[in-house]
Amino acid sequence: MTNLPLKKNISRHPAFWINTIALVLLAVVPPVLFISGQPFWLDVFTRLVILALAATALNLILGFGGLVSFGHAAYLGLGAYAVGIPVYHSLYGGMDSIASFNGFLHIGLAVGISALFALLTGAISLRTRGVNFIMITMAFGQMIFYAIVALENYGGDDGLTIDVRSEFPLISLDNPLTLYTVCYLSLLLVLLIVYRITRSRFGLTLQGARSNEQRMRSLGINCYRYQLIAFVISGAICGYAGFLLGNFTTFISPEMMDWTRSGELMFMVILGGAAFLLGPVFGAAVFILLEQLLREVTIHWHLPFGILLILSVLFFNGGLAGAVSRLRSFKNQ
């Protein structure tokens, strides 16, 4: 992994301008497409932004913390079911304590349950390192997957349709443009949060633990505690992304927490460039748009997609961000 430390004087870095342009485009292009009669492309971008948000959450521990979690799709699923289950009970009765259409309750549940799950599994997983950590996080993800499959009340394998979206005062998520705006603003907020975390003492310690855990420990710093907190924050944000995803798709199933989904999140982070603030956004954009465009061309779109993945690893060491930074150092020579 190439480590791209955040530059002190960030506005002088060309990446700063690329980032700004990207975020402005994300704010402008999808609504324009929607108004010009392309509602489907707004959907594509909504999914893109939600997954970029989840990937940004993963980047906090994967990129900055060096902890490769292969089970992050579980949080997306937990967040989505935190919308689906209360709505289900409001419509069909039972479980009065959580039966509600209230969006704030849904967010609270999504974030709370995800954080709790992250705390429990993180406490165990963080005892391991390297590939074992990858696999144990995947194992916990699979357990949640099978647990949801067993919940027949909520459709089990067949999934659950969310008939009514989360309700908020003043706004309605049923309007696709409103939903996109909420997702986009959420992404900005999460980027800001992650940025602030990485520049804080906490974040610097976390990155220090990634580079050299032994040294941090000899400085008397309890890396485990820092990593666990980061793991919980990451899980909680991902749970929030799940809340958005549930409201977007209005259909949830255990499939969305399968290990391949966790893999896709990982790929978005790596493709964009780990430990680079906007890396996951670029990764998600390339991933989703490429998938959508190749699908138009052939039903065998997996083949060119796979080849591009391999080529990007072979030639873009460090993801897209790595490529950009090398381009820059090439120019400076």
Partner: peptide, 13 residues
């Protein structure tokens, strides 16, 4: 790629 996507999207329209 983002731009291309937008252009292609418009073409589909």
């Amino acid at each position: 790629k983002l731009l291309t996507a937008a252009i292609v999207g418009a073409a589909f329209a």
